[in-house]
């Protein structure tokens, strides 16, 4: 599921330079790439590739009816291509094995692997919480859930992440 939360509020003329594109869409593009790829470093690579493509087409984007949709469309295509090229689909973890919080020191490789094994929906919740720093109300509004359902969904996502990180796939 993909939920776009930011209203269309960019006037076409404000996107005439690469800098304006970066300022306006950097975090949106990175967030989407992270959600698709599940790997922060891959997401950074995809973000760069996306903006290289956007810079070439910036005049078209400036004239587009919905520049944001255009930008995110390019970002998604770039991320999906990179995903196929680098990692391929891995089985998504759906179980809910109980697991303790991820403890310091953090094994970065295992954490990235665990992030990559979550569903895109789980990563969306983690992205909103840890990348965008959204609070409960904002997250609930963005996902169309009530507060209770949202809390349950985030807790489940974290349980799945802990389970994979700690080697418990869950059932």
């Amino acid at each position: 599921m993909t939920v776009e939360t930011r209203p269309h509020r960019i006037e076409p003329r404000s996107l005439s330079t690469p800098a304006q594109l970066v300022e306006e869409f950097f975090m949106d593009v990175y967030g989407l790439c992270f959600r698709v790829l599940g790997h922060p470093h891959d997401a950074e690579d995809a973000t760069q590739e996306t903006f290289l493509a956007l810079f070439r087409d910036r005049e078209k984007i400036a004239r587009a009816e919905s520049p944001r949709a255009w930008v995110l469309g390019v970002a998604r295509n770039t991320a999906v291509s990179l995903f196929r090229a680098r990692r391929g689909a891995k089985p998504i973890v759906e179980g809910l094995a109980p697991a303790a919080p991820i403890a310091e020191p953090v094994d970065r490789d295992r954490l990235r692997e665990a992030l990559a094994r979550l569903s895109e929906e789980d990563r969306l919740l983690l992205q909103m919480r840890f990348l965008e720093g959204k609070g409960a109300a904002e997250m609930a509004a963005a996902t169309g859930r009530n507060a209770g359902a949202l809390a349950t969904a985030l807790c489940r996502a974290l349980r799945r992440l802990r389970g994979v990180y700690q080697g418990e796939e869950g059932r």
Binding site: F34, P40, I102, E104, V106, R108, L111, R112, L115, L126, Q127, F130, L131
Partner: peptide
């Protein structure tokens, strides 16, 4: 730790 990894 998650914030540092997801949003370095």
């Amino acid at each position: 730790a998650l914030a540092a990894e997801i949003a370095p």
